[in-house]
């Protein structure tokens, strides 16, 4: 279980351009489930996801992961969690241009000091499972939208993280690719992974297999649906 208690987030704190992105969020996100955070742009979905994924710290409030408080941990422990617990699929996928698909996929494994050949083999397996094995050595800028997304998913899975976080994963995809993505998500869920996504796409929150939908507006939770 991931629990957020009275979580607020201020950007540019104390400056004239201060923004309150989250306002006292209390939320429980179940493990072994697919949870979707929905809401319009600027509702705080991405900020909430960043805090859950240990990429940002709340300004106030507390976040626990399986009972352990993670919101106050020093940076190196948060990094350790990002490495081992979370796999992140960014809104614009954020693959590093100029590098090949496999180099991008292997990036999260670099600091772990694993055997190069083993990591490469695992990356190729992940790519093969997502029908990208033949594009492994291609620079990422030559991939199509759907291929880029699958490369980003392969990267999120390289360290075998139990929680996969995806920020607006279908924002730029057509219906066919969106359906393909949902199949992958269901497959991950079947493997026992927890999936947390943000989306303002009804195809996502109405999709089969989604266990919980949390609606957000103006930095607050507007409603929760199972």
């Amino acid at each position: 279980m991931i629990t957020l208690t009275s979580v607020t987030k201020l950007y540019n704190e104390g400056r004239p351009n201060e923004v309150q992105a989250l306002k006292g969020i209390d939320l429980e996100i179940a493990r072994d489930a697919i949870t979707v955070l929905k809401g319009p742009s600027g509702s705080g979905k991405t900020t909430l996801l960043s805090i859950v994924a240990c990429m940002a710290r709340p300004t106030t409030g507390r976040v626990t992961l399986d009972g352990e408080v993670v919101s106050g941990l020093p940076e190196r422990f948060l990094t350790e969690l990002r490495r081992t617990t979370f796999g992140f699929v960014f809104q614009r996928f954020n693959l590093i241009r100029g590098l090949s698909v496999i180099e991008n996929v292997m990036l999260p494994a670099a600091p772990l000091g694993g055997d190069h050949a083993t990591v490469r083999e695992r990356a190729l397996e992940r790519l093969a499972a997502l029908d990208l094995a033949d594009k492994a050595t291609m620079p990422v800028e030559f991939l199509s939208g759907g291929e880029t997304q699958r490369a980003a998913i392969a990267r999120a899975l390289i360290n075998d993280a139990p929680i996969v976080i995806a920020d607006e994963p279908t924002a730029n995809l057509d219906t066919e690719l969106t359906m393909r993505f949902l199949e992958i998500v269901r497959a991950l869920r079947a493997e026992g992974k927890t999936v947390i996504m943000t989306s303002h796409d009804p195809r996502i929150w109405d999709a089969e297999g989604v266990d919980a939908v949390v609606e957000m507006r103006d930095g607050a939770i507007f409603g929760e649906f199972a």
């Binding site: 590093i96 590098l99 180099e103 600091p111 772990l112 055997d115 190069h116």
Partner: peptide, 21 residues
């Protein structure tokens, strides 16, 4: 090879690929 060396190798690999870009 120790994990430290493997990590350095992975970082150097990335650096070379990054420089080549």
């Amino acid at each position: 090879m120790t994990p430290w060396l493997r990590r350095q190798r992975a970082l150097a690999d990335y650096t070379l690929a990054s420089l080549a870009r």
